[in-house]
């Protein structure tokens, strides 16, 4: 386990991901290296935030957990079941306990069905309880997310706003009483005033149902608000993982620093941040050798070009994969 000191073998983990690799084949034998060997675990009741820019592999990671598509290699252990080894039928069964919420709430609901039926579907498919029990469960769940069940019974998605559709999608994910919910950019399509409503709702639901969550987003402030632990990804690899207050106060990876410096702050008295970085991430078809961030990193040297940095603990609960971390490791005497 020395190669992955950020993993916590002693915790009650809902999810353990080891050496996850997802590659997509292309023409002429080339491959997109979407996720290149990442490992992490999620404790019961914990929210793991995954941040990074488009193309960093954060959504692919979320989908690989659901086995859509199946990862190229690596292990995904969900409540002590190895998902990658499951056959089709067992996998369907397991997926009832892992649910997903997507970015675009309107297109993730069937436009031609009444929304109450969309929420009822999972219960019908899995034959949970009697017809009356299902109905009352659906109504209760809709009420919990703040949607009037009567209106949901009569209306189709286009009659609801984006924020309301996202609430309905959350109800549908919740109705089977899952253990883990994977949220992929759940608030980025919403208006700012509605975004806070949905974030607060997710926090409330997590507390009420003891949910474990993976929250994937590009907005660093949103991720900080909702997460118990935050992982930063760049070009298919994990850069840094820590609890949010520590990570945002003392980023150790130069990329995390760049990300934080780029966020526009709604306070003109702080002045304008100067551009922290030039260029854009390279293509995941032929990712750089060594540390994948080295071509854009101000601190990069020869070692970074050759050697892939391993995760190291620089302070309790704060791990970084960098040869030249910005935070000096705390030396523990004796």
């Amino acid at each position: 386990m020395s190669d992955a000191p950020h993993l916590r073998p002693d915790i009650d983990a809902v999810l353990r991901v080891r050496d996850l690799v997802v590659e997509f084949p292309m023409k002429r034998g080339r491959r997109v290296h979407a996720v290149s060997g990442i490992s992490f675990d999620v404790a019961r009741g914990e929210t793991l935030g995954i941040v990074g820019e488009s193309g960093c592999g954060k959504s692919t990671t979320g989908r690989a957990i659901m086995q859509m598509p199946r990862p190229t290699s690596g292990s995904i252990e969900f409540e002590s079941t190895e998902l990658t080894a499951l056959g089709k039928r067992e996998l369907r069964e397991a997926r009832t306990r892992v649910q997903m919420i997507f970015q675009d709430p309107i297109s993730s609901l069937n436009p031609r069905r009444r929304v109450r039926d969309s929420v009822l579907d999972p219960l019908d498919i899995w034959n949970r309880g009697t017809v009356e029990e299902r109905a009352s469960r659906v109504d209760k769940t809709l009420e919990e997310v703040g949607i009037d069940p009567q209106r949901a019974h009569d209306s189709r998605p286009h009659e609801f706003s984006g924020g309301q559709c996202q609430r309905i999608a959350i109800a549908r994910a919740l109705v089977l009483d899952p253990t883990l919910i994977i949220c992929d950019e759940p608030v980025s399509a919403l208006d700012v005033s509605v975004q806070a409503q949905v974030l607060n709702l997710l926090e409330d639901l997590k507390a009420a149902h003891g949910l474990t969550m993976i929250f994937i987003a590009h907005d660093l402030a949103v991720v900080k608000n909702i997460s118990d632990r935050v992982a930063v990804m760049y070009l298919g690899r994990l850069c840094e993982i820590a609890d949010p207050d520590r990570l945002y106060d003392r980023p150790a990876h130069p990329y995390t620093r760049v990300l934080l410096d780029s966020v526009p702050v709604p306070d003109p008295s702080l002045g304008r941040a100067t551009t922290a970085i030039t260029g854009e991430p390279p293509s995941p078809i032929s990712p750089p050798t060594g540390c994948r961030f080295h071509p854009r990193c101000p601190a990069a040297d020869e070692r970074c070009r050759v050697e892939v940095p391993e995760m190291t603990e620089i302070e309790p609960g704060h791990h970084v994969a960098c040869h030249h971390p910005l935070v000096t490791p705390v030396t523990i005497s004796s």
């Binding site: 005033s193 900080k224 608000n225 934080l260 702050v265």
Partner: peptide, 23 residues
Amino acid sequence: LLQSIPRLDQKSHTRLNAIPGRP
């Protein structure tokens, strides 16, 4: 509007002042 946006300088899990309803 300003109070409903999560900010980097807030502690994690700060309760957001959501605006009820919609535009």
